[in-house]
Design a protein around this nucleic acid. Sequence first.
DNA 1: TTAGGGTTAG
Length: 466
Amino acid sequence: MARNKFSSYHLAAALRRELDPAAALRLFLNPPASATPFRYSLRCYDLIICRLAAARLFPAMESILSRLASSSSSSGPRPREQLLCRVISAYGRARLPAAARRAFTHPAFPGRRTARALNTLLHALLDCRAPLRDLLVVCHDAGIPPDACTYNILMRAAAASGSVDHARQLFDEMLRRGIAPTVVTFGTLVAALCDAGQLEDAFDMKEVMVRQYDVLPNAYVYTSLMKGLCEKGDVDAALRLKEEMAGKADLVLDSAVYATLVRPLFRVGRKGAVVGLLEEMKGRGIVADRAVYNAMLAGFCKDEKDFGGAFAVLDDMRKNGCKADAVSYNTLVAGLCKLGRWRDASELVEDMPRRGCHPDVVTYRMLFDGMCAAGEFLEANQVLDEMVFKGFAPSKDGAQKFVEGIEREGDVVLLESVLCRLAKVNALVSSGWEKAVSGVLNEATELRLEKQLDSLRNHSGFDQCN
DNA sequence: TTAGGGTTAG
């Protein structure tokens, strides 16, 4: 009988099998009956916390952390810092900086914090767009000796705030403290210099890292430099740099290297060279990813205005097992609308779910704006219906143009319905509707509408619209 | 635990 008992080992296996996080939580809280009180292993805590963190079920995750805190205060193995790092990162990805900071000091993890946890927190805060000074305060307060990774994150924060000089100062500081820079340090610095347009300094850094620090440039360093060259309009120099990479046995070319080159080549009218790049990738066994395809879609739609070519790219993506995302489709929708081809855009949007991608708020806004720009307000009205149903609001400009358009149609009933629907998604701009209303409505209707809209603004009268 | 590439609107 004892052998059949459901142990923490069995629970861990069951948690691994259960893909639905809510079901996994129920399983964790109510393990099948066992003769003795159930003892949770650290592994079970680890599994459920990671699952809840990934699913962003934070309140549930916090309650499990509290249980862990009270259970780990007794003797036994301590929760690993790696788990703490998962929790902190999850809060960073969810843009919850205060929660990330609280997690860092959570009593469920009684062990001493190392640079690893500190670095994870710094990175989470950087994800939340925290300014460099906040990160420096965190470093100071933690009292943990920084390592190269700490400095790399701080340098990136400096660059993100637009100060390459500060990034360089941090580099000097790490050298003074005897911390050896890594290839990531140089990758960060080169990218920062390129973003700031300081290409010469970036190329100097590529030399210095080898000569003075014995660190070889990798694909990250090369890709940043190639992008920098393209932005200066020197695509050929970027292509030469790619050849330099190919000539080095220790370097592996990847999809990112090629993605960097695609749009710049389209921009200068060299789409034939892009075909050559794709062939080259194939020859090297590099699979084109979404970044490469999306760059091609933008090239065909915006530079070439060749929608046959763009749709062919979509087909290639499907054939090659690369799933087009909303951005891929939005690029096409935007291009079509810009040329007044809103019918084609509308057909594509309708077909998106069948193709495995649901239109997002950007898709609808572009289609809506495209129809308004073409003066097709009744068509736009249909799109608005779908948007409101999904809780999407049109852009401020789009809503205004639309209301003005409906006003010109002179259909009072439609105008009333439009204003109500716009109000539902908070897209009512007062200047727009007041102007529209004053043009077409008689005083009594105007007064009634105004009342309705006031009550809508006070979030109390949605039923009046139906 | 840290760095590179692409793209839609506003």
